[in-house]
Amino acid sequence: MAEHYSSFTKGGRLWLWQRITAAFLVVVLAFHFFLLHFVYHADEVTFALSQARMETLSYYSLMILFLFAATFHGVNGVYNALINQGLTGTKRQVVKWTLVAASVVLLTQGVRTANAWAGIGFF
């Protein structure tokens, strides 16, 4: 029988956060799908309507949380999949810090975009 291998430490926090962010993403994606496909139809979605939603603190906060959860979930998943495939040593460190840098760029630009849509003038 094949031995089970996972890069996650048993009982570790990264394993737990991967599952928490997955559950959060499923709920937020369901909300997004319902809102933008059943409440509003494609011909009703405009930039002004999207901007109005982003100006609401609850919606803005949800989208910021979504951005951070999706970034963590995706980057952590890719990184651990590569480790599970045998990535070690210097290559592992290069991939790790490349993913960290890409995450910082993604989060910075995502927050800047959300702030612009919400009419927030900083960052």
Rank of each mutant, 00 (worst) to 15 (best):
T9Y: 12
E44C: 07
K91Y: 02
K96E: 10
T56L: 07
V39E: 05
T108N: 03
S103A: 14
A81R: 07
F8C: 03
D43T: 09
G74K: 00
T108M: 02
A23Q: 06
R92E: 03
A70D: 08
V26Q: 05
A52H: 14
D43Q: 12
K10E: 15
G11M: 10
W15N: 12
F34A: 07
T90E: 03
L82M: 13
A2M: 10
A69F: 12
T46C: 00
F47W: 15
F31D: 10
V75R: 00
F122T: 13
Q85A: 14
F31I: 11
N80C: 10
Q93K: 00
L14N: 12
E3R: 13
V27M: 07
S58L: 08
N84P: 04
A69D: 07
A2P: 15
Q85N: 13
R13W: 12
L16K: 09
L35H: 11
I64E: 06
L57Y: 13
E55S: 12
V95R: 01
G77D: 08
E55I: 00
E3T: 14
R53Y: 14
A69N: 04
L106P: 01
T88L: 03
K96T: 02
Q51I: 09
V27P: 08
G86R: 06
S50D: 05
A22F: 07
Q85P: 08
A48D: 14
V78K: 03
V75Q: 08
V28T: 06
Q109R: 11
Q51W: 09
I64F: 11
Q109C: 10
F66Y: 14
G12C: 05
Q85G: 09
L87M: 15
F8R: 06
Y79C: 01
Q51H: 10
K96F: 08
R13I: 15
N84F: 02
Y40N: 03
F47K: 11
A23G: 11
H32W: 12
S7I: 09
T113F: 15
T46Y: 05
Y60Q: 08
F38P: 01
F123E: 12
A81V: 11
V100L: 03
A42C: 05
N80Q: 13
Y40K: 07
L57W: 14
F8G: 08
M54K: 00
V111R: 01
V78W: 11
H4K: 14
T46N: 02
L107D: 07
G86L: 11
A81D: 12
I20S: 08
N80T: 01
N115W: 07
H73L: 06
V26D: 08
L99G: 06
L99A: 00
M54C: 06
L65C: 13
S6T: 14
W15S: 09
W15C: 05
V111E: 03
V27F: 11
A2R: 14
I83H: 05
L87E: 06
N76F: 05
S7A: 15
F66N: 04
F68D: 01
V100Y: 03
A30M: 13
M54N: 04
V78H: 09
V28R: 00
D43V: 04
S61T: 14
R53G: 04
Q109I: 09
A2D: 15
E55L: 06
R13T: 13
R19P: 00
